[in-house]
């Protein structure tokens, strides 16, 4: 056995895989003594995900040696589609090349998922100093993104000393969401200097919809004409997305 892990709530695993599938159809999961890691860019290289799940997130976690598991996320999610309140045991044997998933709820079931031989892309780190760091509820972000997508392809983020503004405009209308220190949805705002930047709603929609199921709050950081960093606060791990800016 190369990797074996168990967790009480199987749905979290499915939500994580759904979040990753917002960017990529195939994921290269690295399992080592720290836990699980996925670092990937979408095929057009506009967005990136940096995901880590510490072994403390699992009830049991054993790995013989650092292993790479290649998964076709679309196919895997189809198999894991129906998940109720079940606990999960996952086993991976590199020599067999298949992922064995045992689910225990009202009854026990076992799924075998084929894995892929994938070579993970080497993604160099992003070194950016952000001028704005804001913490907002993920429900606020999800609703803003959904509303904005009805009028435009681009969402503009603006920050001044005490306000975070998200706006979008198109033929059908304009949407503006303004958050200040009195807004319930804005939990924190640090602004080094006023700035504004725009990002593709096509990416934001997919990312925010799935990641919001995993975290109630999201830290967003940006600077003028720099990537947007979305850090969804998940338990015992990190789920960070970067989206390249749309530059005028």
């Amino acid at each position: 056995m190369v990797l074996r892990l168990t967790m009480a709530d199987a749905k979290t695993l499915r939500n994580i895989l759904t979040s990753l599938s917002a960017l990529v159809d195939e994921a290269c999961i690295i399992a080592d003594e720290d836990g699980l890691k996925v670092k990937a860019m979408d095929p057009s290289h506009v967005a990136m995900v940096d995901f880590e799940w510490s072994k403390s997130a699992f009830e049991e976690f054993e790995v013989d040696k650092p292993t790479t598991i290649g998964l076709n996320l679309e196919e895997t999610l189809k198999l894991l589609r129906r998940m109720g309140d079940e606990s999960l045991e996952l086993n991976f044997d590199e020599s067999v090349g298949k992922l064995e998933v045992k689910l225990s709820g009202r009854y026990k079931r076992r799924l075998t998922i084929p894995t892929l031989q994938l070579t993970g892309e080497e993604i160099p780190p992003l070194k950016i100093e952000f001028d704005v760091a804001a913490k907002i509820t993920s429900s606020c972000l999800t609703r803003t993104v959904a509303d904005a997508a009805t009028v435009s392809d681009i969402l503009r983020f603006k920050a001044t000393a005490d306000k975070l503004i998200m706006e979008a405009s198109g033929e059908l209308g304009e949407i503006t969401v303004e958050l200040d220190k009195t807004s319930e949805a804005l939990l924190d705002l640090q602004v080094k200097q006023s700035c504004s930047a725009s990002y593709s709603l096509t990416f934001l929609e997919d990312i925010v919809k799935s990641a919001s199921n995993l975290a109630g709050t999201v830290n967003l950081e940006f600077s003028t004409d720099k990537p947007l960093k979305l850090n969804f606060e998940i338990l015992q791990g990190k789920l960070v997305y970067y989206i390249a800016p749309y530059v005028e």
């Binding site: 860019m41 057009s44 290289h45 506009v46 967005a47 990136m48 993604i123 160099p124 780190p125 992003l126 070194k127 950016i128 681009i154 198109g170 033929e171 725009s198 593709s200 720099k226 990537p227 970067y242 989206i243 390249a244 800016p245 749309y246 530059v247 005028e248």
Partner: peptide, 22 residues
Amino acid sequence: VKKCIKVLESTGETTKISDFTS
């Protein structure tokens, strides 16, 4: 076609994450 004209009119450009990696 109207949406296409808007796209052509906008002067912005989508960048890539690789434009920002070290």
